[in-house]
Design a protein around this nucleic acid. Structure first.
Lengths: 244, 244
DNA sequence: CGCTTGGTTGACCATGTTCAATGTTAGTGG
DNA sequence: CCACTAACATTGAACATGGTCAACCAAGCG
């Protein structure tokens, strides 16, 4: 089984591909790495000659200040390619680390670039993926810069729910195996305060989290608390780049 | 004078282009808009059919929370194209606003896409520009999430210095006509506290700012305060996408 | 000269941090 | 099955950073 079928589905959410183009994507393959939790499989400063495809597990993009404080800048779930931008900037400016044990497919950049040259529409789809990623990063700047602790946590949960659940509404749950410490690093707050905010959200019967999953009890209220507007990672199909 | 010559220079910092490709870029043109200060010339939610090229003035990408709080997510200076990502996501997820009176060239996306189809290397260069932009956004997440007020301000000034000055060192100044309120919105803090931090940086003879420019008195100390590492927006040339 | 924009100040207050201790849970070897 | 351990969650108390409010100042410009 060629693994990136799930990735193709992701691309097709925003870019229609012909059968040839789809096959070219499906032929992509690479080395399958088992990554133990907490280990960094891409380090800031490394020169990458492959892009990672998440087969299973939860992965985070993280950076460290000069004083060693960690900031998580994005979470990635199975089906995501967290370092597609390496196609354009092979020198990694952030690290990728496994939040849980993870399985990662390393696809050589050379193979990706070959497909991009032959099928410009595939290049466009990949570029669009990186644009969505950038759009999410912008929303994180907003989140950390302008929202209160409670809003921040709620917003992060909303984002993950929107990405992982088909049409979230009412009560549902989804896999989000991050520790409270991880959440704290993602929202720019201390683990202690993070814990207290989660407690109030739990007591208000809005959402509950543990190391396995998040259980949303009231999607509407959660969105209202967060001031969540999902439009930022719903790209619209544009015109295809016509073949020459 | 076709305006984007400065943009070409920017592209060539990371991607070598043939004479034909350069000419194709230089032929790009569009309507020249005079944008008065404080006005939003791209609004979140708008559907864009052009990309903006900054001819003069200081421009910011900004977003607003559901409660109307503004976060500035990036600054753009003459020679930048702040909404290149519209090529892939024509639905704007953030606003662009003029911090000072500005002059903006609106290049139709259709014209850009034509050049991209004909010259894949140009497409690659543009993609690389958006990747650098994303990398800067990530650094802003780090900045706001993990650094103290003083570190944040220092870091922002370091970033702008690095982008605007050839080889910063010792004492120098550069145009950075943002108000203290703008800086506050960019660093996620209140104007009052921002003012106090600027005062201490001034009293320590590190850096001084007014509505026209920033004057760095001691680049080394400023970098040390910020924990600044410029590698994040220095892309390295990679292989060119070979012609088919 | 008066208006407007932006910078500065002080006093008080709120949000979130730090430190240090204690619970809780799941996994591991005996 | 139990003791032991490690990782994570929870708690309280003291504290710090930065926010809010409200007033005042300074410069530029018609």
């Amino acid at each position: 089984m060629s693994v990136p079928r799930r990735f193709l589905a992701k691309l097709e959410r925003h870019t229609r591909l012909t059968a040839d183009e789809q096959n070219a994507v499906l032929r992509l393959d690479g080395a399958n790495d088992a990554v133990p939790r907490e280990s960094e499989f891409v380090r800031r400063g490394a020169d990458l000659n492959s892009c990672s495809f998440i087969v299973s597990g939860l992965v985070a993009r993280a950076g460290y200040t000069a004083w060693g404080k960690r900031q998580i800048m994005a979470f990635y779930v199975p089906g995501d390619m967290p370092d597609l931008h390496a196609l354009m900037m092979p020198h990694a400016t952030a690290s990728l680390l496994a939040v849980t044990d993870a399985s990662v497919l390393r696809i050589p950049t050379a193979a990706l670039r070959e497909v991009m040259v032959q099928y410009p529409a595939v290049a466009e789809a990949l570029w669009r993926e990186t644009a969505i990623d950038a759009s999410i990063a912008n929303e994180w700047v907003m989140n950390i810069g302008q929202r209160s602790a409670k809003e921040r946590i709620a917003h992060l949960i909303c984002e993950m729910a929107q990405r992982l659940v088909n049409s979230p509404s009412g009560k549902f749950d989804f896999a989000f195996p991050a520790s409270q410490g991880d959440l704290a690093d993602a929202t720019g707050m201390s683990p202690v305060h993070d814990n207290r905010v989660l407690q109030t959200l739990r007591k208000e019967n809005v959402v509950q989290m543990n190391r396995q999953k998040a259980t949303v009890y009231d999607w509407n209220t959660l969105q209202n608390i967060a001031g969540f507007d999902p439009s930022y990672f719903r790209p619209q199909e544009t015109h295809r780049l016509a073949a020459r």
